[in-house]
């Protein structure tokens, strides 16, 4: 057989063999066998020296041609095999993508903190700064300076925890603040003669048995605005804005006349019940309204006690609950859940 025929035979065998290489390993072996340093094509090329001189160029060209053809065939075969092998491997790597992920523990802010922050934000938009006052207060600040003298019937509105010891002289007696209102006097005395726009958040305490509806410890947010021309309609406007931002834009607000010793005139503000839209339900006690704040124009005696001349200045004040609106918003029925700190409850917020 001529060298040419033999070369063509090797070419054909190589192509036939290539089809049987079904893995990349088999393909590597094929490459060694035909195109490697000791491969059959390489061996063919070496034969060129033993050939007739006139045949040499043609044979050499053909060998190179075949080598290139086989290299191309190898490359395209390799591509196909790699692709199918990758597909196979990836398929084998499949997992149940619905398995629960590796847990990342997340903390939760207390519902009271979340509600307080909402109130801070809303009132900050209206220019109210947060001002803090002590929990343990002087009787004078909690009562007398707020126009609630000793034995005055208005004191019945607050059942008070009194503190032992210290100077038990009137006014110097100490108690746990029953409301955040003593902060009004502190803020006024500190800031006079500036106009004032503050909210006073804080823990308050009342001598009340702990039940589903009452706690001896709770939070309040008091608001106070004092200026040369502050009016009742400003109070109504401010609280309506608050209600819209907190409860929802489309809720109506109503104003009822009320009584507080430190405001005159005194009012209470209600918003349409957020659960029944004013239709009447258990949460609003079938009135269609939820109380959002007690409020009023700062009593001239209180303004004067704060250092502001009531003939020149006027002001409004309001006091809003913190737990109650949160309870209403989330349909919580038991106020004890707040400071009982059942984490199963707190983690829902």
């Amino acid at each position: 057989m001529s060298a040419f025929a033999e070369l063509e035979q090797v070419h054909e065998a190589a192509l036939a063999d290539l089809k049987t290489a079904l893995t990349t390993q088999a393909l590597d072996a094929w490459e060694d066998r035909y195109l490697g340093r000791k491969g059959e094509i390489t061996l063919q090329a070496r034969q060129v020296g033993q050939m007739a001189r006139e045949d040499r160029p043609a044979f050499g060209r053909r060998v190179n041609e075949i080598k290139q053809l086989l290299e191309q065939a190898h490359a395209s075969r390799l591509e196909v095999l790699r692709h199918s092998e990758l597909t196979e491997r990836l398929e084998a790597e499949a997992i149940d993508v619905t398995l629960p992920g590796r847990p990342v523990v997340r903390g939760h802010l207390h519902l009271t903190t979340q509600t307080l922050r909402e109130l801070y934000d809303i009132f900050a938009k209206m220019g109210f700064e947060v001002y803090e006052a002590p929990d343990v207060e002087l009787e004078a600040y909690n009562f007398d300076l707020l126009n609630i003298p000793q034995y005055h019937p208005a004191r019945d509105m607050w059942d008070t925890f009194w503190v032992e010891g210290g100077d038990q002289q009137r006014g110097n007696r100490r108690l746990l603040r029953t409301h955040t209102s003593p902060g009004q006097i502190r803020a006024m005395r500190e800031r006079y003669p500036e106009p004032l726009r503050v909210i006073l958040p804080g823990k308050c305490y009342r001598y009340e048995q702990i039940t589903v509806r009452s706690e001896h410890q709770f939070y309040q947010v008091e608001g106070l605005a004092v200026g040369p021309r502050i009016t009742m309609t400003d109070l109504i406007g401010t609280m309506t804005e608050f209600s819209h931002l907190f409860y929802g834009r489309d809720r109506r607000v109503r104003v009822r006349s009320s009584y507080f010793p430190f405001t005159e005139p005194s009012v209470e503000l209600d918003t349409e019940c957020i659960l029944c839209d004013g239709e009447g339900c258990a949460v609003c006690k079938y009135t269609g309204w939820l109380e959002i704040a007690g409020a009023g124009m700062v009593h001239p005696i209180v303004l004067a006690n704060g250092g502001y001349d009531p003939d020149v200045w006027s002001g409004f004040a309001f006091g809003a609950g913190v737990e109650r609106p949160a309870m209403q918003k989330f349909g919580v029925e038991d106020i004890r859940l707040f400071y009982g700190n059942d984490l199963r409850f707190l983690r829902q917020f």
Binding site: G127, P195, G227, T233, I236, T238, T240, E241, R254, S257
Partner: peptide
């Protein structure tokens, strides 16, 4: 003032924005 306001009726009061310089 309170007597006048409550009998006049708070439902007749508009809400206003505080028209004063900020502290």
């Amino acid at each position: 003032v309170e007597e006048v306001a409550r009998v006049y009726g708070y439902e007749r009061f508009p809400g206003t924005v505080i028209d004063e310089e900020l502290p």
